[in-house]
């Protein structure tokens, strides 16, 4: 019973953190909220018997991603907060129909998803074994993605040298 309450609390906090990330007026706070969301996801992953993914989530999402965002924020002009608020209001007025639409999409999913939930107990198939036997093509994909990311950094971040033709 206690376990369930802890889990419910974590879920609620997860949603609240996401809302905070969205509602924060200062960009920096939004990024912090995003990191906090990540931390909660990490905790939830631990609860779901997935320690390796949790570690990844913590290190990459809460760590690396926040760092990238902070870099982006420092490298760009600070926002004009009043203008942000005005334009946000204007856009919210224009896209008033979106939340119901999205919720409809979500509910449509829930409707079919919920009736037949299988309740098999957690069986332990080892993630390392899975990764190296049946999903090693994905690992190859990961390597390629990382190489592509490296080129992204080279092409997009590096300043063009002035004397280059």
């Amino acid at each position: 019973m206690n376990d369930a309450i802890v889990e419910i609390a974590m879920l609620v906090t997860f949603v609240l953190m996401a809302l905070w990330a969205v509602l924060a007026t200062k960009l920096l706070r939004a990024v912090v909220a995003l990191a906090a969301t990540s931390v909660l996801v990490t905790l939830l992953l631990f609860r779901l018997d997935s320690p390796l993914a949790a570690v990844f989530e913590l290190s990459v999402c809460a760590g690396l991603v926040s760092a990238i965002f902070l870099g982006a924020i420092t490298l760009t002009q600070p926002e004009n907060e009043a203008e942000v608020a005005v334009s946000a209001k204007e856009r919210i007025r224009r896209y008033w129909y979106l939340p119901p639409l999205l919720l409809l999409l979500g509910v449509a999913l829930l409707q079919v998803a919920l009736p037949d939930v299988p309740t098999t107990a957690a069986a332990a198939d080892d993630v390392r074994k899975v990764l190296w036997t049946s999903r090693h093509l994905d690992l190859l994909g990961q390597i390629t993605v990382l190489v592509a990311g490296a080129f992204g950094v080279i092409v997009l971040f590096k300043e063009a040298r002035k004397n280059e033709r």
Binding site: Y95, L98, L101, L102, L104, L105, A108, L109, Q111, V112
Partner: peptide, 20 residues
């Protein structure tokens, strides 16, 4: 871009409902 995404989402909603 938002409008383009919204088109996609609306069509996706129709498809999901149709499939459901």
């Amino acid at each position: 871009t938002s409008a383009y995404i919204v088109w996609s989402l609306i069509a996706a909603t129709f498809i999901v409902i149709y499939l459901g």
